[in-house]
Amino acid sequence: MTRPLAILRPAPGDRATLERVHAAGLAARATPLFTVGPLAWAPPDPAAFDALVLTSANAVRHGGPGLAILAQLPVLAVGPQTAAVAAAAGLTVAATGDSDLAALLAGQPPQRRLLWLAGQDRTASTHPALRQFIPVYASTPRPLNAAEAESLHGSVALLHSARAAQRLGTELDRHRVPRGTVRIAALSAAIADAAGPGWADRAIAARPDDTALIAAARRLAIDP
């Protein structure tokens, strides 16, 4: 028996993940838990900063015209997918991480002046090089209807963020779909922990990217 994978991330990331899952020979369905949209924001003087920190491709997708004003700043991207979207938008990627924000900033000197563009809800950081944070997009929770919640029964849910992990549990509990009928695959142990207890099984990606996440999910999807 092969369980379907449930893709919970918002568009357009859900489509990209769906294509990767199908390329891996697995079944999947997209059931986004959030909708993403731009926020109004004013770019600061780029001369006041040394580099731009991007922790999500959505900051590029929804950055709007203000992003062009900051295009002269080199980009520190949290991962390869964010780096690829930034490069495609004409930004110069100077460094690409392979873990999380803390790892990305670990080698940055405290006197460096970094501007962080991200979502309205983000994991806080106290690194001294982060001089300013500007939210440029927001992820709004999207309630599942009863049929969507029931469709997750027997699936392997892909968790790309702690917010999605928490939201998944909330929505299943609200519709009385037992957590014990769902397996979860997460980009990190912290994300899996955010989902809370009660899941049928869980797996952690070896790296924080879609390819590794799908590989982890495959181990849960194929029953002996």
Rank of each mutant, 00 (worst) to 15 (best):
R15D: 15
T181R: 11
G198D: 03
L144W: 04
L8P: 09
Q166V: 13
S161K: 07
I69H: 10
A106G: 14
R183K: 12
P44C: 12
P46G: 10
D121K: 15
H22I: 08
L213T: 04
A88P: 08
I222R: 14
L105G: 12
G107K: 05
A28I: 06
P224N: 00
A94T: 12
A216F: 01
L172K: 07
L67A: 08
R207A: 09
S161R: 06
A28Q: 09
A165S: 10
A206I: 00
D50I: 11
V156C: 03
D45Y: 07
G107V: 13
Q81S: 14
V78Y: 06
R167F: 04
R202A: 06
L115K: 07
I222K: 08
G13Y: 04
A16E: 14
T31V: 14
I134L: 15
A186T: 04
R20L: 08
T35D: 12
D100T: 11
R167V: 07
V85H: 03
H160M: 11
R183F: 01
A138T: 10
G97F: 10
R179C: 10
P38L: 06
T181D: 12
A102N: 07
L8I: 08
E171N: 06
G119N: 11
G107P: 11
A194K: 00
A118F: 06
G66R: 06
P109W: 14
A206T: 04
A68H: 12
A146S: 11
T55Y: 14
G79D: 07
D45N: 13
A195T: 02
E148V: 05
A216T: 02
P38C: 05
S188L: 02
G13L: 07
T92W: 03
A146V: 08
A190M: 02
G66H: 05
I204N: 01
S139P: 12
A24P: 01
L101A: 15
A57H: 14
L105H: 09
A217G: 02
L104D: 12
H62S: 07
R207Q: 09
A94Q: 14
P43H: 14
A162G: 15
A185W: 01
A147P: 00
L26N: 04
W199F: 01
A216V: 01
V177N: 06
A205D: 03
A165H: 06
A95H: 15
A217W: 01
P12H: 10
P109K: 13
V136W: 04
V60P: 14
A94L: 13
R113E: 13
A103C: 11
T170P: 01
A165G: 15
A216H: 00
L172G: 04
A68C: 03
I69W: 03
L105K: 11
L54S: 12
L187G: 05
A84L: 11
L67W: 08
R207M: 02
P178I: 13
G64L: 14
I134W: 03
A24Y: 02
R122L: 04
L8V: 09
A16C: 01
T123L: 12
P46L: 11
D209C: 00
V93M: 09
P74H: 03
S125N: 07
A203Y: 00
V53T: 05
R179K: 13
A212W: 00
P74Y: 02
Y137L: 05
A186W: 01
L67G: 09
G196C: 02
R3V: 04
A106T: 15
A28S: 10
Y137I: 06
A165N: 07
G13N: 08
N58W: 11
R219Q: 09
D209N: 08
G66N: 05
G63C: 10
V136Q: 02
V60D: 10
